[in-house]
């Protein structure tokens, strides 16, 4: 690809492209976590689910030659992890955060174990749609080469936002997340609802993992995740458990993550690596700015163990 010099315009453009590329796993993991947390549980194990999802997607894609089957495998693997978490947490006195941490390590470890043979071979990538083909500028084309999963994630965010208000299942999840007693009084079983919500959350996190190994960066390595699964949990909190907020926060986070590489690409040679820390600094700043010692978090599900 020949490069056209577009000067400093390259920075916002690269950040836009980066935001879209980097944010997709965040979108899926944080939407999954939003569903789980709205039901009153925290699943910190999504980091492990993400890594295992990445491995299983890649492995199945290599073996069958179909990235879509890989995606399906990642979702199923994530579902299993989520259901496992939900099943353990139904027992009395089990702490969901501790189980989450255990599953995070377990998921990563299991992925490394099964993933060894798949570090070398290459798999077909998930398709992307070239929205930038109208432009002659390669940077624009690169930035607007949007993966289908990003579009699905955007649609999913809108759908969840709508579903939490307008569907029976959405309302049930919110009821269970806010008050287990009220749910029981309505004849709902909070454990079942949370089991399913954690399962769905796990499946979405698995899809986020599949994106990592099948599109960007697009191969399976043991360092494939740089904590996206954990950061997504923080995203959910500062998105105030709102799916649209999760989407926006993921984009912002992706954009901040693309700042370092973008500066490097326009020839900033000193200190650009500091900007690699931008997403993490951004998280800290937003967390501090939006919290208050004298107020509780608005919109926090009442049954959540960190806000109780």
């Amino acid at each position: 690809m020949e490069t056209t010099d577009i000067g400093l315009w390259g920075v916002p453009l690269a950040m836009l492209g980066g935001a879209i590329r980097v944010s997709t796993p965040f979108i899926f993991v944080s939407l999954g976590e939003a569903i789980t947390e709205r039901s009153g549980r925290i699943n910190l194990g999504l980091e492990g689910t993400l890594v295992f999802g990445a491995m299983s997607a890649y492995a199945v894609a290599v073996m069958t030659g179909s990235p879509w089957l890989g995606l399906l495998a990642a979702a199923v693997a994530g579902l299993c992890f989520g259901l496992f978490h939900g099943w353990i947490c139904k027992f009395p006195k089990v702490n969901d955060i501790a189980i989450g941490i255990a599953l995070m390590l377990f998921g990563s470890g299991l992925a490394f174990f099964f993933g060894k043979p798949f570090i070398q071979p290459s798999a077909l990538d998930l398709p992307a749609i070239p929205f930038g083909s109208w432009s002659g500028i390669p940077q624009v084309q690169a930035a607007l080469n949007v993966n289908v999963l990003f579009l699905i994630g955007a649609a999913l965010a809108v759908f969840l936002w709508w579903a939490f208000r307008n569907t029976r299942i959405g309302l049930i999840v919110r009821v269970v997340g806010d008050s287990a007693d009220a749910a029981r009084a309505m004849g709902l079983n909070p454990n079942t609802v949370r089991l399913l919500a954690t399962g769905v959350g796990g499946a979405l996190a698995g899809i986020g993992g599949a994106y990592l190994s099948l599109y960007y960066p697009g191969s399976w390595t043991e360092r494939i995740s740089s904590g996206q699964g954990l950061m997504a949990v923080a995203l959910v909190i500062f998105a105030r458990w709102n799916p649209l907020g999760c989407f926006a926060a993921a984009l912002l986070f992706g954009g901040a993550g693309a700042l370092g590489p973008a500066l490097q690409s326009v020839g900033v040679t000193q200190g650009y690596y500091l900007f690699y820390a931008a997403p993490y600094i951004l998280t800290l700043v937003i967390m501090i700015a939006t919290s208050s010692p004298s107020r509780t978090l608005a919109g926090a599900p009442g049954e959540l163990s960190i806000t109780k």
Partner: peptide
Amino acid sequence: YQHFTLVSSLTGAENLVIS
């Protein structure tokens, strides 16, 4: 009940319909 069984993060209308 003595203690409220309404779901506090839902609106009144949502509480009525979902129950």
